[in-house]
Structure formats: C-alpha cells, structure tokens
C-alpha cells in the first residue's frame, strides 16, 4: 500500500508535470538515450548476426564475444569510463550498447540458423543471389525471433538507461537517483513506475511491429 500511495502522490503532484524536471522532459530524454543506444547496438548486432547466421560460420566466436560483453558489469563500466574519459554521453552509451549487443547478436544468429535449409536450397537452386537469399528468404522467416532479441535488448536498455542520471545526465533515472539522495521515496517509486510503463509500452510497440512486419505465413507461437 505504501508503494501505491507513493505512486499516486507522485503523479498527482502538478510540479512533476512541467519544467526541465517535468515528466514529459525526462521521458523524452529517456527515450532519446534508449533509442540511440538501441540503434547503435542494432547497427552492430544485426549485420554481424545476419551474415554469420547466413553462412553458419563463426558461431563459437560469436558466443565467446557475447559472453565477454555480458560479463562486463554495466554500472562498473559507467563509473570507470567517467573516471577515465570524463562526463558526457559516452560513459552512458558505451555500457548501454555493450549491454544490448549480446541479445541482438546471439538471437539474430540463432534465428538465422533456425531457418529450414530446404527453402534456402530451393532459392539457391533457382539462381537467387546470396544477398537476396539472406534478405528475402531467410530474414522474413527469422524476423519474429530477431524482433524478440531486439525487444529484450530494448527492455534492458530502458531499465538500465536510468544510470545516465548517476553521471549528471537526465532521463527517468533522475527521479530515482535524486529521490535516493533526497530520501524522497515518492520520487523513486514514481520514476520506477514510469520506467516500467515505458517498458510495457515498448512491449506493445514490438508486438505491433511483429504484427505488421511478419508475414502471416510465418507462424510463430
């Protein structure tokens, strides 16, 4: 009940709805960090996962790389980079990208490997170019799983982007970190609720994207 009370008082406080520390501003900041990190991670993870998955080579190296990236502690990385390189966007982006690349990379690779070999064989036998086989035969079938990897990366980023506040940047983490130092639990709970809501919205967006982009012929349970 305590928590619920905090939530209502946080959201009914008019002061939380405007200004540079208002919910819209913080939400937008949080979204911006998250999208940037997800975009960067996808830019790295997707092509590498697609190509290695298509050729079926380098799977072990990929797993090793993903394990190493997963092993790096996100929060420690943030503090370390701040100490070495100073404040800015970089200390936030690097840990978030390191966090998001493994799920994207590994799921994309495995999604491509899970495509049945017979349509690929048929496509090759029909004289389809390798790039077309990858993009038009394998990718559409692997898409649901790939979207799943992106979704899980997105959720992790949204949850973790709160660390930006620890290094004096904005985002929804502002409420949590400030709340912690000001012993204002209402703020902490309000911020956490917003992050969870954003995650929920992200799930919905990915669900809709899957509905729109995945062919009805590709049935995924």
């Amino acid at each position: 009940m305590n928590v619920l009370h905090f939530v209502t008082s946080f959201f009914t406080d008019g002061a939380h709805w405007s200004g540079y520390d208002g919910i819209p501003t913080r939400l937008l900041e949080h979204l911006t960090y998250s999208l940037e990190a997800l975009g960067l991670a996808a830019l790295i993870g997707l092509p590498v996962g697609l190509v290695t998955g298509h050729y079926g080579k380098g799977g072990n190296a990929l797993t090793l790389l993903a394990t190493a990236a997963r092993a790096l502690p996100t929060f420690g990385l943030l503090v370390l980079i701040v100490m070495v390189a100073g404040f800015g966007m970089l200390p936030v982006m690097i840990p978030l990208v390191v966090l998001a690349v493994p799920p994207i990379l590994v799921t994309t690779y495995e999604a491509m490997r899970s495509v049945e070999p017979s349509p690929v064989d048929a496509a090759r036998g029909m004289g389809m170019r390798e790039s077309d086989i990858l993009l038009r035969v394998e990718l559409p079938v692997a898409l649901p799983l790939i979207l799943g990897g992106l979704r899980s990366a997105a959720i992790q980023i949204i949850s973790t982007a709160t660390i930006a506040a620890y290094v004096s940047l904005g985002g929804l983490g502002r409420y949590i970190v400030d709340g912690l130092y000001q012993h204002n639990y209402e703020k902490v709970v309000g911020g956490a609720t917003l992050v969870a809501a954003l995650a929920l919205a992200t799930l919905a967006v990915f669900w809709a994207a899957a509905r729109a982009a995945v062919s009805p012929g590709v049935r995924q349970t």
């Binding site: 049945e116 017979s118 349509p119 690929v120 064989d121 048929a122 496509a123 090759r124 036998g125 029909m126 004289g127 389809m128 170019r129 035969v137 559409p140 079938v141 995945v214 062919s215 012929g217 590709v218």
Partner: peptide
Amino acid sequence: VNTLRRSMGYVIQNAGLFQHR
C-alpha cells in the same frame, strides 16, 4: 552460375516453399 540456375527448374523433397510468401 545464377543465369544457368534460372534456366533450369529445381524441385526438392519438401518442396522448399517460402513460408512467408
């Protein structure tokens, strides 16, 4: 090679249809 293959029909065991099309 792709010109050659496009000039020949190719049918395999499980048909190998593209399930998304």
